[in-house]
Design a protein around this nucleic acid. Sequence first.
DNA 1: CTTCAGGTACGATGCAAGTCATACCTGAAG
DNA 2: CTTCAGGTATGACTTGCATCGTACCTGAAG
Lengths: 111, 111
Amino acid sequence: MAGRNLVGPEADALDLGAVLRALADEHRRAVMTELAADRGDSERGCNSFDLPISKQTQTHHFRVLREAGLIDEIDYGNRKGIRLRRADIEKRFPGLLTLLGAESPGGPAPR
Amino acid sequence: MAGRNLVGPEADALDLGAVLRALADEHRRAVMTELAADRGDSERGCNSFDLPISKQTQTHHFRVLREAGLIDEIDYGNRKGIRLRRADIEKRFPGLLTLLGAESPGGPAPR
DNA sequence: CTTCAGGTACGATGCAAGTCATACCTGAAG
DNA sequence: CTTCAGGTATGACTTGCATCGTACCTGAAG
């Protein structure tokens, strides 16, 4: 079984401060941007993101994202899955995920 | 005369990272939330925000907001004016200012 | 001129956060 | 069983940043 093993806040309890602090970090924002670009919201492995940091630090960053309520972490024991909480984010902060696609000045919309 | 004496980045050069880092701070976000709530975008004095911090720290925060491209600071010599760069922000990151009004869970739109 | 309030510049301090090293746990594959 | 890869826990280090103290600048009012 693999539900929301590692839990974050409920959709209505998402805190804007925590969310913005989470997105303020470059690496975490890169993860979120990738997740937001995938409209299928497929579950992804932790190492499918090409982060130039140690795995301990990655663990830290994913924890911050989860505690901010931005992702779910599914624990499989010796493996972990990441899934974007798109619906909850859109409900609480509509348009936020779209902004993550506006990184490049001039070429915004990912579609 | 009083144009954009203290300058920030151009509208197209607004950096999402800098913007999010600026908004991650509670005091700076409070300022931005107040500014975003005023649809008239009237110029405001620096001390019209009731910030519980020293004036040196306020100077620091306003500088961060300006360098992120979120506000203009108009220097009058011994006084200073603050104005929201609403149009530039909306052009580069549409919907961002609206999100600032979604602080309270359940009662979002300030209108 | 002097006085005073608003702001800035510089420096110091204290705390939060990002990073990694070491050690350990978990489950799958030999 | 052992081995190995993925992930976590703990602790230490270091950087960044919010904060303030002191000193100085600016313009208006007396």
